[in-house]
């Protein structure tokens, strides 16, 4: 146990996800040894993030204004929406440079066992966005795990009657891997999603 401010800092750092007591102690002593200007920059960034960053009123992505930069970008295709679980998934899709449409962040996935149902996600907001008739395709890019799959199934069941094209990201073999190491679920999906080679 340390005294006063040092122990308070260790306790606060220890509350962060993935930071245990030893890591919290190491980070605290790193900050103690760091230059004052570096620590002040970190502190002001933390305060700024909390004060200025909010969620986009249209898509639910993180933004510094009412709407995020993707929703306000007129060069983006408004007829295609990619549905993801978390804002970090937007960054992952943006890194591909393949997608030029807009996003909708659900804020998680349906998980009955954890008490998360459809009403706990931003599904109502998504349906409102689809009503204006501008959107023609919805890409379901929820995580390739069971919760993500079930959420995609639920959304497809709700949205298909609206006459939109609903697509799901393909699952399959990772590029650069060996076939013999693929598990049977992934390999099975790769088979069912195989495509013609011209």
């Amino acid at each position: 146990m340390y005294e006063g401010a040092v122990q308070d800092l260790i306790d606060e750092l220890g509350r962060l996800p993935g930071v245990g007591p030893k890591s919290a102690q190491r980070i605290a002593f790193h900050l103690l040894a760091a230059e004052s200007v570096d620590v002040e920059r970190l502190a002001s960034t933390l305060v700024r993030v909390k004060n200025e960053v909010r969620f986009c009123t249209i898509c639910g992505n993180v933004a510094e204004a009412d709407q995020c930069r993707i929703c306000t970008d007129t060069r983006r295709d408004p007829s295609v929406i990619c549905v993801v679980e978390e804002p970090k998934d937007v960054v992952a899709v943006e890194r591909t440079r393949e997608f030029r449409g807009r996003y909708h962040v659900l804020g998680g996935a349906i998980s009955p066992i954890d008490g998360v149902g459809p009403d706990d996600l931003r599904i109502r907001e998504l349906l409102t966005r689809l009503r204006d008739g501008v959107v023609t395709e919805l890409i379901l890019a929820t995580d390739p795990n069971l919760e993500g799959e079930a959420t995609a199934t639920y959304l497809a069941r709700m949205i298909n009657p609206m006459g939109l094209t609903v697509t799901r990201l393909a699952s399959g073999l990772p590029v650069g891997g060996d076939l013999e190491y693929a598990d049977e679920v992934t390999l099975g999906r790769a088979f069912s999603g195989r495509r013609r080679v011209d």
Partner: peptide, 17 residues
């Protein structure tokens, strides 16, 4: 794997719940 029941059932929301 002896049976990927969950993966087979996740594509049917009713059965997955």
């Amino acid at each position: 794997s002896l049976g990927a029941y969950g993966a087979q059932l996740a594509t049917d929301y009713t059965r997955w719940t």
